[in-house]
């Protein structure tokens, strides 16, 4: 009849199972999949990230040297950062903060003719 009581008593005197969230924040795990960060200076605008993204939230314009990402459509799978040839696209371990209005990350880089060749091939 009272099988659950010992567990309840243990929870009652034991440690809390939850955190008081806005005051106590647990640090993110080391390889948690958080926000996507693009270092636009080393981006070659090759468009691999845009082609591989399963939710198609990244758009790359090679001619205008722009890179934009819709973080509300992103599913945080990390495929883009994994497939980035120049290593400019990274995934940080911090989660994206909630926002009141949807916004699009829009980055503009320099138009450089050398950028037509992907980094990996240029090294050879």
């Amino acid at each position: 009849m009272f099988e659950m009581t010992p567990t309840i008593m243990r929870n009652f005197i034991g440690k809390r199972a939850t955190r008081r969230y806005p005051y106590v924040v647990r640090p993110a795990f080391e390889n948690a999949r958080g926000v996507i960060y693009n270092d636009i200076r080393s981006c070659t605008f090759c468009g691999v990230c845009a082609a591989k993204c399963p939710s198609q939230c990244i758009t790359v314009d090679k001619k205008a040297a722009t890179w934009s990402c819709n973080p509300s459509a992103c599913v945080y799978c990390g495929v883009c950062a994994e497939s980035c040839l120049s290593g400019s696209l990274q995934q940080k371990c911090d989660y994206r903060k909630p926002v009141q209005e949807k916004e699009v990350i829009f980055l503009r880089g320099e138009i450089n003719n050398n950028h037509n060749i992907p980094m990996a091939m240029k090294n050879e």
Binding site: R33, V79, C93
Partner: peptide, 12 residues
């Protein structure tokens, strides 16, 4: 799940 893969449920 989160510590090993980065996501809690949809671990991809």
């Amino acid at each position: 799940d989160e510590a090993t893969t980065g996501n809690r449920i949809i671990i991809s």
